[in-house]
């Protein structure tokens, strides 16, 4: 799997929005303290569902939209299968 920024070509650092459930308490002085944070979304599901949902993984460097290539060797397999088909003929 490979993630590439469509604008600058960065393939290392990206930003991803994730929903969390935050447990907090009100202090006596009116401030808020965070007690616990629970992740509500699965990262794996979110990456696989990229394109189906409205969320977007963005490049950390330029803010551009990133593209996820789940199988970067897919095109090689295609060439191989085509070559095998030609040999068969």
């Amino acid at each position: 799997m490979k993630i590439i920024c469509q604008s600058c070509g960065n393939h290392k650092n990206f930003l991803i929005p994730l929903w969390v459930r935050c447990t907090f308490k009100f202090n006596e002085d009116g401030t808020i303290s965070i007690l616990h944070i629970r992740q509500l979304e699965s990262l794996e599901d979110k990456i696989v569902d990229q394109g189906k949902t409205s969320f977007a993984i963005t490049c950390k460097e330029c803010g551009g939209e990133a593209r996820i290539i789940l199988n970067q060797y897919e095109h090689l397999d295609e060439h191989k299968s085509q070559a095998l088909a030609l040999e068969g003929l």
């Binding site: 490979k2 993630i3 393939h11 290392k12 650092n13 990206f14 930003l15 991803i16 929005p17 994730l18 929903w19 969390v20 990262l43 993984i57 950390k60």
Partner: peptide
């Protein structure tokens, strides 16, 4: 919603 960093 929070924003996390994903390192490939």
């Amino acid at each position: 919603e929070s924003l996390k960093q994903l390192n490939s």
